[in-house]
Simulated scan of single mutants.
Amino acid sequence: MSDSNENVKWFSLASIWFGGMVSVPSLLIGSTLIAALSFQFTLLAGLIGFGFVVLFMSFLSIASVEKRKNTVSLASSSFGTLGANIIVGLVIGISTLGWFGIQSNIAGASFSKIILEMSGTDIPVWLSSAFWGLVMIVTAVFGFKYLKWLNYIAVPALTVLLIYGLMVTFQAHSFDEVLNFRPTQPMPLFQAIGFTIGFVAVGGVISPDYNRFAATKKDAVLGSIIGIIPSAICLLAVGAIFAITQNTYDIVEIFSSLGYPFFAMSTLILATWTTNVVNIYSSGLAFTNLIGFKESSRSKVTLVVGLVGIGLAIIGILTYFMGFITILTIAITPIAGVMIADYFLSKTYSDNPQKLNWKGIVSWLSGVVLMLVMTSDIKNILGIVVAAICYVLLQKIVK
Rank of each mutant, 00 (worst) to 15 (best):
I340F: 01
S297Y: 09
A35F: 06
G133E: 14
I114E: 07
L37A: 07
M265K: 10
L28H: 06
L74Y: 04
K379V: 06
I314F: 12
K148H: 03
I48F: 06
S38Q: 07
F18W: 11
S26K: 02
G51E: 06
V200I: 14
V205R: 03
K113Y: 04
Q246M: 15
S23N: 02
A387L: 10
K218T: 10
V221H: 02
V221E: 02
V277M: 01
Y349E: 13
L158K: 01
S12I: 11
S282A: 15
F144P: 00
G259L: 09
G292N: 11
N5S: 14
I86N: 00
R212P: 02
I197N: 04
M371N: 04
S224R: 07
D342L: 03
E66A: 13
T71W: 11
V386S: 05
G292Q: 11
I378W: 07
T302E: 03
F263H: 07
L82W: 13
W358G: 03
N247Q: 15
A109V: 02
T267K: 05
L290K: 03
V398T: 11
I244K: 06
N70R: 11
A215S: 13
K217D: 08
L356G: 03
T96G: 08
F195C: 01
V373I: 15
F39Q: 08
F144I: 12
L222D: 03
T245K: 05
I193T: 04
L394M: 15
G239R: 09
I92V: 15
I29D: 05
V200C: 10
L47N: 04
L189D: 01
L235T: 03
S78F: 04
D219Q: 11
S23C: 09
Y320M: 14
I269T: 06
N380W: 14
G223V: 08
S282M: 13
Y249M: 12
K217V: 09
Y281R: 08
